[in-house]
Simulated scan of single mutants.
Amino acid sequence: MKIASWNINSVRFRLPIVERFLREMEPDILCLQETKAQDSEFPAQFFRDLGFEHVVLHGQRMHHGVAIVSRVPIVEDDRLDWQANKEARHVGVRLPNGVRLENVYVPAGGDIPDREVNPKFGQKLDFVDRMIAWSDKLDVPTLLVGDFNIAPLECDVWSHKQLLDVVSHTPIEVEALNRLQGSNSWVDLGRHFQPPPEPVFTWWSYRAKDWAASNRGRRLDHQWATAEVAGAAKAHRVFKDCRDWLKPSDHVPLMTEFDF
């Protein structure tokens, strides 16, 4: 089974590259973040026509939004409000083998890494704390995927020194993400298959005139698995070339293949 994750940055605007990815890479399940569509506007029939008959949504008009589309049966599980304001940032399902699949879109956190000056940064840290409380009690095999909006390692950003004070790579965010990973048996599949110090990025800003030449990326997107699920992981890939496709998202998809 191949499970992919992609912050698509408006699903309706990027249907051509979504279709290309699904046809060329053939995932069994695709988890999307930042769909920017309420459930009634989500192009569910588009995915069903491509063989993804099972669609589970948690949408919101114009902002945020997550979705899981699948070729295999999935059972809707939960929509957790880790943001504590009813933003559509999480949806979870159960797979036929009992594995839980959680799709999350962590808030970006604004521009200033100070919760007193920038409430959005505090909301981001509180979001991760609520995830930690959930993770600490988790007792079933689980795959957690999505846009975490945190690049934890020095080799997860183009310049560790220059980004230490930039939201997404600050020490306080990294410490929070490390606590989340330590709250259960989470294995960072991206770094399991591509160990440090090899640089790995999943996001490049639209502001760069030539994103590939400057390569000022960050690894903001992740797939984490509890020990049982990690043991079934056979391969992992980041599809960097998708950043060059027509009307691309600023994020690229990643996918793990499992032996189950």
Rank of each mutant, 00 (worst) to 15 (best):
M25K: 15
V66N: 01
V145C: 13
M131W: 06
R61N: 11
D77G: 06
E26M: 07
R23V: 06
L101Y: 04
H251F: 12
E26Y: 01
Q33H: 06
H58G: 02
V229F: 07
A213C: 07
V117C: 00
E228H: 14
G98R: 13
F148M: 15
G122D: 10
L164A: 14
R218M: 15
V252L: 00
F13P: 00
I172K: 11
R23D: 09
S135N: 03
W224H: 09
R61I: 10
F148P: 01
S159W: 09
W82D: 01
V238S: 03
H192M: 14
P248V: 02
Q83K: 04
P199T: 12
D78N: 14
K240I: 08
P248R: 01
L22V: 03
R207S: 02
K124Q: 00
Q162P: 08
S40D: 15
N85M: 10
S10D: 11
K2F: 09
N178R: 11
V252S: 06
F239K: 01
I68L: 10
V91A: 00
H236P: 06
A227Q: 12
I17C: 13
R207H: 12
P96N: 06
Y206F: 11
Q60W: 04
V117A: 08
T35E: 00
D156P: 02
F239C: 02
K36I: 04
P171M: 03
I29F: 00
S40Y: 04
L153Y: 04
A235P: 05
A88N: 02
R115D: 13
V167Q: 03
V93E: 02
T256K: 08
D28I: 07
A4N: 15
V55F: 03
S214V: 14
R100F: 03
G122P: 11
N97W: 01
H251K: 09
R207P: 05
H251Y: 13
Y206L: 10
P141G: 09
V106P: 05
N85D: 15
A151E: 12
P253V: 01
V11F: 12
V157I: 04
R219S: 04
V72H: 10
L163Q: 12
Q123F: 00
V200L: 15
Q123H: 03
Q162K: 15
V157W: 10
R61H: 13
R94T: 13
S10F: 06
E24F: 08
W211R: 14
C242H: 12
E41N: 13
W82H: 09
V140Y: 07
P16N: 07
V106E: 03
P195K: 12
L254S: 13
G231M: 07
H160P: 07
Y105S: 04
R115S: 10
L164I: 07
H251I: 12
Q45E: 15
L32N: 07
G182N: 06
V174R: 15
N97P: 03
Q83R: 08
D250R: 05
A67M: 08
F47T: 04
R219Q: 12
W158N: 14
E19M: 10
H63N: 14
K137R: 13
F260G: 07
T170R: 03
L57F: 00
W245F: 05
V117Y: 06
F13I: 14
